[in-house]
Amino acid sequence: MEPFEPEDFWRAIILYGLNTATYKIALAQCLISYGEGHQTDIPLDVLARDFFVLYRKRLEADRPQLVLPDRLTVMERIVRLERLGKINEDQAIERVAREAFGDVLPRFHTVSDKALPMSFYHFDGRTLHLTDELFDLFGNGPKREHLKDETGSRWDLLEAAFSLRRERWSLTNDIRQFYLEKGYARTDITHTRPVLNGYQHGRCFYCGDVMDNDEVHVDHVIPRQLVQHDELWNLVLAHRFCNLQKNDALPDAVYIEKLIARNEHFIASNHPIKQTLIRELGASPEARRKAVLRVYHDAELVIGVTWQGIRGYRPDTDPLLHKFNQLWKTIPHSSR
């Protein structure tokens, strides 16, 4: 089996870790800044100050940081007290150090209750000792900016998903309307593309090759004219060229099998919309597979298979499909 790289484990944490709050993403952003600064040892009080400043700025937008409605995270409560003048900044930072890290620091490297075999820091109760793997990614790593974008976008999507869940909005169609009605229009929604791209590891769904940022299209695998929705399970990223080649055609079954694998890869994520996807497609991989195939076979009856795919494409040599299968086998998931 191809060995995993530090970026694979970082993505596992960011894209597949359990996120009922945004603490893990905030800690990840602190780690990125330390890695860029080549800092090796971070005292707890320094981390607490950086964590507090990061959240104070983030909460200016008044977006939820916790999946549970009518509840606030410890960080939201501390920032609110400081804003109201009930505690000063130094007192706020002391409370962060004392109250905010009890769960996130020991569990940052845990995905689906499994400790990953690579760590980006070790914590001795007083100091974070950063590892070479962190510096490999964010010191001068070639994928530093890309991974930073993914991490920042994950926080954006968590906040949006928490809000959607609280207000009982449905999936993709309503996300667009939600951004407009709730003032999110100021945020470029294409900024969320790095997270979706993270699930495809920067590769085109149809040909498997690396995509450049200026040539990425979002495509309905089963044409929208047939499904009449924009649900996430049927959306992929593709090269502009590959998307235009496919156009509104129904692709060969090999791409539907890849879509099913991609969906299992996506459902492995503990993003708050995970349960929406499970509710729409089914509670088990078998049920979800049947749901996708049912839509595909119905489409076949209407228009037939009209696109055989990119010339030369072979599933057995597709690095994206290989990556889906690798991560799926390695990380245990409660939804399997």
Score class of each variant (00 low, 15 high):
Leu27Tyr: 02
Ile32Asp: 00
Ser33Gln: 15
Gly35Ala: 04
Gly35Asn: 02
Gly35Tyr: 03
Glu36Met: 10
Glu36Lys: 12
Gly37Asn: 12
His38Arg: 15
Gln39Lys: 14
Gln39His: 15
Thr40Ser: 14
Thr40Arg: 15
Pro43Val: 09
Pro43Lys: 10
Leu44Ala: 11
Asp45Ser: 15
Val46Leu: 12
Arg49Asn: 12
Arg49Cys: 09
Asp50Glu: 11
Phe52Ala: 00
Val53Tyr: 13
Val53His: 12
Val53Gln: 13
Arg58Leu: 11
Arg58Asp: 11
Glu60Pro: 07
Glu60Val: 13
Arg63Ala: 10
Pro64Gly: 08
Gln65Lys: 06
Leu68His: 15
Leu68Gln: 15
Met75Gly: 02
Glu76Gln: 11
Ile78Asn: 01
Val79Met: 08
Val79Ala: 06
Val79Leu: 07
Arg80Val: 09
Leu81His: 09
Leu81Ser: 12
Leu81Cys: 09
Glu82Thr: 04
Arg83His: 09
Leu84Glu: 15
Leu84Arg: 14
Gly85Met: 05
Lys86Val: 12
Lys86Trp: 11
Asn88Ala: 06
Ile93Cys: 05
Ala97Tyr: 06
Arg98Asp: 14
Glu99Leu: 10
Pro106Asp: 08
Pro106Arg: 08
Pro106His: 07
Arg107Gly: 10
Ser112Glu: 10
Ser112Tyr: 09
Lys114Val: 13
Ala115Thr: 12
Pro117Gln: 04
Pro117Arg: 07
Ser119Thr: 14
His122Asp: 11
Phe123Ala: 05
Asp124Leu: 04
Arg126Cys: 10
Thr127His: 05
His129Asn: 09
Leu130Ser: 05
Asp132Tyr: 08
Phe135Leu: 13
Leu137Arg: 03
Gly141Tyr: 05
Pro142Gly: 07
Arg144Asn: 13
